[in-house]
Amino acid sequence: MSTSHAEHDHGHGSGNGDHVPHVLPFKVYIGTFSTLLFLTVVTVGASYVDLGHMGNLIVALLIATIKASVVALIFMHLKWDHKFHAIIFVSALLFLAVFIGITMSDTQFRGEAEAIEAKNPVDLKDPFKAERAGDVAVPKAAAAPAAAGSAAPAAGSAAPAATPAKH
């Protein structure tokens, strides 16, 4: 766009601190407009092709983002504007992404712990009841005569089903 700069960068020596506009050539606007119309046709066309659950969504969002960028950069002059204005604009999108992203970390994974708990039910009043083999280290020598009742604490972990009767 160097030509557009040339259009206004000279010849305004008024010196009274007036604002001098930054005028873009007409063909830039026509080009932008035709790009937007073309992409509208493309996005409608793409919707007739079945790309699956996420496929169509991604394509639609991609095209929309290109269109939005064109509007922002050229119609909204962001390309020639202060960098800070672009930072403001992008930060809005960034925070929107945080908002949607973290919220979906809830909605997409809700209730998953319940399923895990259902597989391994725990009695809250007696959490150690559900001990399984290997939870407590058992000396090999002690494990063998467990049936004789000579090693009561070890027996609890080796044969959990039998322990409640003893307590």
Binding site: I102, S105, D106, Q108, F109, G111, E112
Partner: peptide, 22 residues
């Protein structure tokens, strides 16, 4: 401050994953 709002919701029924992240 924008990354921690879910710590108001630990008992709301939100996913355990979010609770841990928050």
């Amino acid at each position: 401050s924008f990354l921690v709002w879910g710590h108001h919701m630990f008992v709301s029924g939100q996913s355990e994953l979010s609770s841990a992240i928050f």
